[in-house]
Write a protein that binds this DNA or RNA. Structure first.
Lengths: 374, 374
DNA sequence: TTTTATGTTGTGAACGTTCACAAATTCTGC
DNA sequence: GCAGAATTTGTGAACGTTCACAACATAAAA
């Protein structure tokens, strides 16, 4: 008798016979195909194909009949076959940075980009019967190019979403253009190709600065992000603009360089708070550096927000857990990814026009900003 | 002259001519196929197929030549075609709960399961040229079944990973078995089917309790998780066992019910700390409830860890941000997902034997546990 | 050397779609 | 009632693999 091993725990095997398997209904169930549906309805498979693709020129009565049969049989189009037959894959891939992901992991943090895409891009994909695939790509450009090329070749996605820092890698964009694959950058600034989804970093900085000014602060300092990111520049500009608009002068020492790292935040904060005339508020260009500011302030027994207000950009999940919880400009990551997916899906696999999309940001007021107290 | 609109910003269009497009190299580049590689090497496509599948019986010299050509051409097998031709899809799908994901989002938290899978399952997949796809599925069983069925039909994955709470949904498991798709549950306990990857919750509870006992605590309380999770039961058992082993008695009031929610943690903590004879340490069955304990303690001016030690299970990203940072048993989510993916890939699309895998947990000592101070 | 086994390579069909086009049907206006 | 147009439906090929098997080449055994 044919016998099949089904269970094995700690070396102890439980054996079921072939017949027991059969009785238990253990057998690969074939999923229904276009032809199955067609047979049920007495039409050709092509007509069914038209229905699932919402193509015109199908008699209403027939369409209804087919739709009923699809529901009845639980038919869902085979993605692989669709990709083979036509020139669409119903697949969008999101490129995330491997190093960043790994770093986040090491310090016990999640990958915010990936998380946010679950709510934004992935939901949008779901709605249009697209699938979304996350791809980890190395930061180093030649590696990244090779990895993306392989992914394109094996997946043939209808669209690619580039998240930081890959959104700034023009080689990847060129590869995608050459390949004829639509792509969207998110969290980036204007470019001469692709779909670009961004927030208005300058306006965000103005908002952040205005918030502090409205609270009565006048001595407002700023810690910059990595200079290679355009966003860093824009945020600095916004800060300067808002200060100028309010007729507040900026002491040269108020502007500290940084690179988005905790350490650079520490350095910046120390330079800022060690002077005899410290600022009453600090704008950090990202959460990580804002945490550093809180850390330094705490070390110096400077009470936040009573003696010092702190505000940042990004609003990663950790922001609500800092002490006190961080006031921040929330980068609309989910919304941006949603928009990117939306535009890519609309492109239907064809290179779309170059477009820019600005998504609204939010100021999340928590407990690190308060009224200036003399 | 043929003209193509390429750029459009705020209604302002920049027009490139057909020739400019051509010069810019804007044209769909075809990716190389098996036949292209075969042509270069002067062999049949089947031989190339053998090489990419690491099949035996290919002359070493020929294999080398083909491998060189593959590298040269940047060939990567087309996933869709592979799925069509053979009976493998090189695809693993991870089922996550939609409601849970959305809830996490609403409170500004990431989805820990998804995050951890990036490092575990996804890395493992990458290594074996598999792709991993995240799928959000509703909690409600009939919905879940329908959604999974559709996903199976359209994706035909080689394996499915079920995360909580779907790991406990036997209907899904039955569907998968009927469908002939290998599946692995993670974060679950033993079952009669599938690959089951879990941690030893009882041992973890013993470890947590022992940790407190080692610090000199004797009055140790426990807040349970939702009774429908087996893990809740096991953790409680472990706690009782460790207490018994140390000859410590458990006051009936020490054992508080809970359901993994912040609110239930609040209730439990209040019951525990409002008595005239409060415990000196509290074990919460998850981070969320531990946060609630910290919150209540803070409200009562009970200093942690000086007057009260707190320890929890899970160690979500937020655990390091609590005040003070939480001591916790880290659920080895990444390792479990990695193991699950590993086993599924090894099954090569065939229903594997029923197996159980226990993955090591870790005790992460942070600042909520300290020596008992009279 | 012949036979047999073993290792290596090639061939044709199949997978489930879409596409391009051809065929059949229904509608329109006279 | 009919030609012609418009709508609806069907057919065959193609996509890039794998599978099953056939054919060929080489090595081992007789």
């Amino acid at each position: 008798m044919t016998v099949q091993k089904l269970r094995s725990i700690n070396g102890f095997d439980i054996i079921f016979t072939f017949w027991e398997c059969l009785l238990a209904g253990i057998e690969k169930k074939k999923s229904p195909t276009l032809k199955d549906v067609a047979a049920v309805c007495g039409v050709s498979y092509q007509t069914v194909s038209r229905v699932i693709n919402n193509a015109p020129n199908v008699k209403a009565e027939v369409r209804q009949r087919i739709e009923a049969a699809i529901e009845e049989l639980g038919y869902a189009p085979n993605l692989a076959a669709r990709r083979m037959g036509g020139n669409r894959s119903y697949l969008i891939i999101a490129i995330n940075d491997r190093a960043r992901t790994l770093d986040n992991w090491k310090v016990g943090r999640g990958n915010d980009w990936v998380d946010q895409m679950l709510y934004g891009a992935m939901m949008e994909c779901e709605e249009h019967d697209y699938r979304m695939l996350f791809e980890l790509v190395d930061t180093e450009s030649s590696m990244a190019t090779k990895q993306l090329e392989r992914a394109l070749s094996s997946l043939r996605p209808d669209g690619v979403i580039l998240t930081p820092p890959h959104n700034e890698n023009q080689e990847l964009a060129n590869l995608l253009t050459k390949n004829g694959t639509p792509f969207a950058r998110i969290g980036s600034s204007r470019h001469d190709d692709g779909i670009n989804v961004m927030m208005d970093d300058k306006a965000a900085a103005v908002t952040a600065t205005d918030h502090l000014i409205a609270l009565g602060h006048e001595k407002i300092a700023f810690i910059s992000g990595s200079p290679e990111y355009l966003a860093s520049k824009l945020r600095l500009e916004g800060y300067r603009e808002a200060m100028a608009k309010a007729d507040l002068s900026i002491d040269a020492a108020w502007e500290q360089p940084g690179d988005f790292s905790f350490d650079s935040g520490m350095t910046g904060a120390r330079s800022l708070l060690d002077t005899s005339n410290p600022p009453s508020a600090i704008i950090a260009s990202n959460d990580e550096m804002a945490f550093a500011v809180l850390h330094v302030a705490n070390g110096k027994n400077i009470e936040v927000p009573v003696q010092l207000s702190v505000i940042s950009f990004e609003d990663t999940p950790g922001a609500r857990f800092s002490v006190p919880p961080l006031t921040a400009i929330r980068q609309p990551t989910a919304a941006m990814s949603e928009r990117a997916a939306h535009e890519l899906i609309a492109a239907k696999g064809n290179l779309p026009a170059v477009t820019d999309h600005v998504v609204e940001f939010q100021l999340i007021i928590r407990e690190t900003t308060g009224h200036f107290n003399g």
